[in-house]
Nucleic acid binder design. Structure first.
Lengths: 240, 240
DNA sequence: CAAATAGTGTCTTTGAGACAATATGCC
DNA sequence: GGCATATTGTCTCAAAGACACTATTTG
C-alpha cells in the first residue's frame, strides 16, 4: 500500500522522489556463444566502459513503455518482447546520485542483432564467456577481439543475472525460439541451447524432447546450400 | 545506462523523480492453505480494502533495507529473509499519483505468522484460495470467515504472482522449509507442498525425493502427543 | 486388541543418456 | 562411390506413481 496516511506519518522520507531508469539486456547467440549489445560510454563516470542501453522513466510513462522506447530509440527494434529481470537499487550504484534501475531482458534472433548493430553504429556486440557452467553467477564480458570489456555501474551483475535467468527458463519455456530465425534446423536449436547452458547435449535425447514438447512443427522443407545431407526445417508452433 | 549525457539530452523527462515504495507479501501456510498477511485500509482510495504492508523508499535507503524496515515496523519481524518479486509501475496503479512499487516475498513459519499477528493487531491473515492448480494466475483472497476480501490497488495481482513464484521454486529450491518450524515431520512437509501446489502428492515418492535431496536430516526424536504412531522429526540441513 | 498413521518394499512406467546403425544429399 | 551430417533404433538406467504391506504408538 505504501501510501496511506499511516505510512506517510511513520516515514519521514515518505515523499522522497527518486530517479528511476530502465536498462535493457539485449541478448542473443552469435558464433556459438551468448552475446549482448552494449554501448561504450564517453563520459565520466566509467568513461570508456561498456554499459547497457537504458533511459530514464518518464513521469507519465509505464516501466514497460520506457523499456520499449529504449529498444526503439537505441537499437531500432520496434517490436521485441521484453521481460522484467530485476530491480537494482543500492544507494551507491551510481557514484553521482541515487538511481533505481529496472532491468529488462530482450532476446534477439540473429537477424535482429545485425539490424540493431546497423541501426545504431555505436552498439557493440559483446560475448558472454561463462567460466563454469555451474551457474556460479560469474561471467566474463569480452569484446570482439576476445579482450575483457570493463562494464559500468553494476551492469556486469545485471548481465550475469540475465544469463542465469535465461538458463533457468530454457528447459521449461519456449524462450529458445526467440534466439533463432523463424525457420531452423534441430541442430541450430541444439546449438542455441548448448551455447546458453555452456554444456553439450545428447543429440537423440534433445531431438526427442523438443519434438515431444509439441513446440515445433516440421515444415517439410529442408535447408539448402550444405555440402552434405540437408536437415529438415522446423518452425515454432507458438503456444506454451 | 540511463544517465550519461546522451540520454539526458535525448530524454526531456530525464530528471523526473518518481515515488518508489516497497510492498511485502508475507506468505505462509495455515490450516492446509496458503495465506498472506494484510492490512485493512482506513482511508481513501480503497478504504476498507485490504492491502499489502508497504512503505516508501527513503532517498538514502537501499530497496532491500526498505523492505526489511517494513517487515520490522509493520510485522515485528526483524530477521526474515525476503526475495524480490517484481516491480510494478503502471502509471495509474495508484489513482492519486504516480508510484512505482517494488514487491518482495517473505516466507513465514507458523510461529512467525502468529508473532506478526500479535505484534500488529491490525494485521489480518487472508487465505489464498486457488480455483485451479494450473497456474492460471487467478486467485481468490478470503478473510477468516471465508468471504471474498477486496484488495487495494494492484495488490491482488501481486499476491497471485507471489504464489506463482513460490510454486515454481518449490521443487527446485529449499523454500518449503521457510514455511515450517525448525523441526518437522515428513507429513508436515508434504502438507506444505500440497497446500502450495494445490494438488495431492504420492507419499512414498515424496519421501524418497525429499530424503534424496539431502536437504533434510533425521533428528532421531519423534513427535509427541499423537494418538497413533509418532513420526520422526527432521530438520533442514541448511545448504542448497 | 483395535484404530490410526508412520514407514517400507516392489512392480511398472516414463523419460533421458549412450551408442550405434541407417539414410540422404552433394561432390 | 565417398564424405559429412541427418535421422532413427535400441539398450540401459534413474526417478516417480501405484499399491500393498509392515511397524508402532495410544487407548
Amino acid at each position: 500500500m505504501a501510501d496511506n496516511d499511516i505510512s506517510a506519518r511513520e516515514d519521514p522520507d515518505a515523499y522522497a522522489r527518486l530517479s528511476v531508469c530502465v536498462d535493457i539486456v539485449l541478448m542473443g547467440v552469435r558464433k556459438g556463444a551468448p552475446c549482448a549489445l552494449l554501448l561504450r560510454r564517453g563520459v565520466s563516470p566509467f568513461a570508456g566502459h561498456a554499459a547497457l542501453p537504458g533511459g530514464f522513466v518518464g513521469a507519465q510513462e509505464a516501466l514497460e513503455d520506457a523499456a520499449q522506447r529504449v529498444l526503439r530509440d537505441k537499437a531500432g527494434l520496434p517490436d521485441v518482447r521484453c521481460e522484467q529481470l530485476y530491480t537494482f537499487g543500492e544507494v551507491a550504484r551510481d557514484p553521482r546520485r541515487r538511481i533505481v534501475t529496472v532491468a529488462w531482458l530482450a532476446l534477439l534472433a540473429p537477424a535482429a542483432i545485425e539490424a540493431a548493430l546497423e541501426a545504431n553504429p555505436e552498439l557493440l556486440c559483446a560475448t558472454l564467456d561463462v567460466p563454469d557452467s555451474d551457474g556460479s553467477g560469474d561471467i566474463a564480458v569480452l569484446d570482439s577481439a576476445g579482450a575483457r570489456l570493463p562494464l559500468a555501474f553494476d551492469h556486469e551483475q545485471i548481465l550475469a543475472l540475465a544469463l542465469e535467468r535465461l538458463r533457468g527458463k530454457l528447459d521449461y519455456t519456449a524462450v529458445g525460439f526467440d534466439l533463432l530465425p523463424p525457420f531452423f534446423t534441430l541442430r541450430q536449436l541444439q546449438d542455441v541451447h548448448e551455447a546458453i547452458r555452456g554444456t553439450t547435449l545428447n543429440k537423440p535425447a534433445f531431438r526427442r524432447r523438443m519434438i515431444d514438447t509439441g513446440w515445433i512443427v516440421p515444415t517439410g522443407t529442408r535447408e539448402t546450400g550444405t555440402s552434405h545431407r540437408p536437415a529438415e526445417l522446423y518452425c515454432f508452433r507458438g503456444l506454451s
